[in-house]
Every structure is written in structure tokens, then in C-alpha cells.
């Protein structure tokens, strides 16, 4: 009888492990994460690249970024941080390793108008990459609260 119980316990543990793996990518209510709904890392990297070129072409804010994107290594750090941040923030399998938004922007004196221009560039990138309206709004809702850590610091 005892070996049967042990076998049953092992089978249950294996079943639970599989169930956990299968539900890794949802919020627990069966709905996929925003990361999955966006299209995963491929779409996030496309949106990030389009966002970066939008920003560099945007005369209102491009001077804030030129020195960073003009340097090969600094560009990779910025791009990787943006991708990891969006990926992690939407429930994807990434870990953001960069500074907090407050630490990264303190002393830069970024205005509310500059932040709005940045968000408009991101929204334009999402539109260009044909991200659905619901996913676009969900992502912007996650990112917009960062304004308090970025503006006028």
C-alpha cells in the first residue's frame, strides 16, 4: 500500500510541475500575458527599434539621445534595457538589469512636453508595427506612470 502512495505522490508532483509550466504564461485566469498578446520578443524588439528611430528623427527630443545612440556600445545598452524593460513589464521571461527610472533620469531636467513627445513616438512605433489597439493601450498604461520618476528630476 505504501509504495502505491509514494507512486501516487510522485505522479501528482510531476502533474503539478507540468501544470505550472503550462500556466507560466498566463495571469492565473487563463488569459495570456501582455507579452504573449504583443507577439513576444520579436514584436517587442521591432517596436523598440522603431521607437528608437522615431526618437532620433524627432527634433523635439533627439538631442537627449544622440550621444547615446551614436555610440555603438551605448546604443546596445539602451536598446537592451528598453527591450528587457518592456519584456519584463509585460510578463515576459526577461529581467530588467538597468537603473530605476528615477536613478537614470535624476539631473536630466526632462520636461513634461519632452515626455509626451517620447510617449507619442512610442505610440507611433506601436501603430507602425500594427500592434492591436487593446495591447497598445495596455502597454502605454504600464509605461505612463513612469512619468513621475522621469519628469522634472
Amino acid at each position: 500500500m505504501k509504495p502505491n502512495r509514494i507512486l501516487f505522490a510522485c505522479l501528482m508532483a510531476i502533474a503539478m510541475a507540468f501544470t505550472t509550466r503550462c500556466t507560466d504564461d498566463n495571469k492565473g485566469n487563463g488569459e495570456p500575458t501582455l507579452y504573449t498578446r504583443l507577439g513576444g520578443i520579436d514584436v517587442i524588439s521591432k517596436v523598440t527599434d522603431k521607437f528608437l528611430t522615431n526618437v532620433v528623427a524627432d527634433d523635439m527630443i533627439n538631442t537627449r539621445f544622440e550621444a547615446t545612440v551614436g555610440n555603438h556600445y551605448r546604443l546596445q545598452v539602451l536598446r537592451n534595457n528598453l527591450i528587457d524593460q518592456i519584456c519584463a513589464g509585460t510578463g515576459g521571461p526577461c529581467q530588467y538589469k538597468g537603473q530605476t527610472m528615477l536613478e537614470a533620469h535624476t539631473g536630466m531636467k526632462i520636461s513634461a512636453a519632452e515626455f509626451s513627445a517620447l510617449m507619442a513616438d512610442l505610440a507611433a512605433a506601436l501603430d507602425f508595427c500594427e500592434v492591436a489597439e487593446r495591447e497598445k493601450n495596455d502597454l502605454l498604461t504600464i509605461l505612463t506612470p513612469m512619468e513621475s520618476d522621469i519628469v522634472d528630476k
Partner: peptide, 14 residues
């Protein structure tokens, strides 16, 4: 493109 300025954190760790 400008060669100085920009995001200071990236500049320090670059």
C-alpha cells in the same frame, strides 16, 4: 550625431 551628453548612466558604464 553629438558625441557627448545624453543619458549619463549609459555613459558611465559604456
Amino acid at each position: 550625431l553629438q558625441t557627448s551628453g545624453g543619458c549619463p548612466m549609459h555613459g558611465m558604464t559604456a
